[in-house]
Design a protein around this nucleic acid. Structure first.
Lengths: 157, 157
DNA sequence: CTTGAGTCCGACTTATTTGATCGGAGATCA
DNA sequence: TGATCTCCGATCAAATAAGTCGGACTCAAG
């Protein structure tokens, strides 16, 4: 239960990858294109493209068009929270359908519903949790490309 | 995002209702049948039946067959957690598909996946949150028996 | 200034999950 | 014994998610 979608999964992977390339190792501020990420993680190219578009539209990354184009983090990794990323892809957090209902529309159960209020509390707690964790926190201790000698820069494998 | 299913919703409502009838007001230890709950909250009868069956199978409630039959909480409301209820309906908590993977099966992204570990931490935090909240907590504001001394064990009202 | 590599974007198809329904078997009390 | 109720498996329909396709726009190199 409470599973996040594959798209959200891909978003997290892609952002983490971009962050690593941008801040993690020697290659300085290099842009990352869709194809590179798709191949690295075995993600369907077209689907990943859509995910990255959504992230761009929501201000998580910046896109640069044309040849040698690609994506860049819109701001520092420590200022991008998990909550922001997930909401960019899956829409606002909401345990139940009635989470964001205005006073106008009711669910069929609303009149006798006693679980709405406590569930909203739970939801709020989860949100705070997701919003306190940043992209930076997800880069800790991962031995990815790790040390790459400066002489081999630009040569990715 | 992170929405729980309608069935889980119904489960929470139904359990809360049963708990109220059993502990909350004057009618003492009365059993509650499916129809009563379905009508009270406008839930499709057959669907609610399935939900209650699942709850029964998972030890949340006890079923009593035949005429004048119905459901009863299997134990005190303070010993039934939200996590237990949700897992009875929706299966084990898992943000990603790979949450419960054994070492044998890999997802396509596993080899380069750097987000698994941090996500598992988040997942664990959410679980603790859901597991620390009980059915009793969801009855807040409703005057119920509250304190039950250990000496009255076995006598559930 | 043309061309090709690359992003961008929306519509579309397919697969999976969820919501809801139906029919009958077994249990219990009057 | 009969009426009522839970129990349980199978099935259908609707909603959502995953993945695909085709074309328009943008930029840098030749």
């Amino acid at each position: 239960m409470l599973k996040i979608s594959k798209k959200a999964d891909y978003a997290l992977m892609a952002l983490q990858h971009i962050a690593l390339v941008q801040f993690g190792d020697v290659t300085p501020g290099r842009v990352v294109n869709t194809k590179e990420i798709a191949e690295e993680y075995n993600i369907p190219l077209e689907l990943l493209a859509k995910v990255l578009q959504a992230l761009s539209k929501n201000g998580m990354i910046e896109s640069h068009n044309g040849p040698k184009g690609g994506y860049l983090l819109a701001r520092n990794a420590s200022h991008i929270t998990i909550a922001q990323i997930l909401e960019s892809i899956e829409g606002p957090l909401g345990l139940t359908d009635c989470s964001h209902e205005k006073d106008g529309d009711f669910c069929m159960q609303r009149e006798h519903c006693n679980i709405r209020t406590p569930l909203l509390k739970v939801q709020d707690s989860i949100y705070q949790l997701l919003n306190s964790m940043t992209l930076q926190d997800m880069m800790g201790g991962t031995p990815l490309i790790t040390i790459q000698s400066p002489s081999t820069q630009g040569v990715d494998r």
